[in-house]
């Protein structure tokens, strides 16, 4: 857009277009997630190749969002990057994953105890893996912010306290 054709949208239209694209992106993201879950429940993990395409696109979107945010020193609009937050988010994901696996197993074998055990194992696995991955993300985010701050300091050319004494216009 920048190098090629001239942007025909004015400022407000541009903002609205970004908003539309933003909504469309999240619709695609959660739409894919829902499709994967439905297919997982319907076919089970034994026929995972049926939804491999959706899973690859979903993971590409997830990896892109995380990588782009960390590169730009952004974590989240509301959540703080802390171990406690990571633990809660991982537990929520683990509960959802464990419940889905429980339903899928119960549907396949009909044994409640086996389904509960497998659901519990999946919950624990997701909890541990997600907490570890998110902690790594927080570590990378903090390193990146430090680097961006250092770059900003170099570009602005001011060290802490350098300007004391003020130089007028």
């Amino acid at each position: 857009m920048k190098k090629g054709k001239k942007n025909r949208l004015d400022e407000m239209q541009e903002q609205k277009m970004l908003r539309i694209e933003h909504n469309c992106c999240w619709l695609a993201f959660f739409g894919l997630f829902a499709v994967i879950l439905v297919q997982l429940l319907y076919y089970g993990m034994e026929e995972a190749e049926r939804f491999a395409g959706e899973w690859i696109v979903f993971m590409c979107m997830a990896v892109y969002i995380v990588a782009a945010c960390i590169k730009n020193g952004i974590w989240d609009r509301r959540l703080r990057p802390s171990f406690q937050t990571n633990l809660y988010a991982s537990a929520a994901g683990g509960l959802a994953g464990g419940f889905i696996r429980f339903l899928a197993t119960y549907r396949e074998c009909g044994d409640l105890w086996t389904a509960l055990r497998i659901g519990g194992i999946v919950f624990l696995c997701i909890l541990v893996v997600c907490t570890a991955v998110m902690s790594l993300g927080v570590f990378l985010y903090r390193k990146r912010v430090e680097r961006l701050d250092a770059e900003a300091e170099m570009e602005s050319g001011d060290e802490e306290g350098e300007e004391t004494g003020g130089n007028g216009k």
């Binding site: 020193g73 900003a152 602005s156 802490e160 306290g161 300007e163 004494g165 003020g166 216009k169």
Partner: peptide, 24 residues
């Protein structure tokens, strides 16, 4: 902006915090 914050003895970081935005 740089001159104005120098007049106020403010670093870029201090101004960013006062305004409520990131240093970047």
């Amino acid at each position: 902006i740089k001159v104005a914050r120098a007049e106020k003895d403010m670093t870029q970081k201090a101004l960013a915090e006062a305004v409520g935005i990131s240093r970047q």
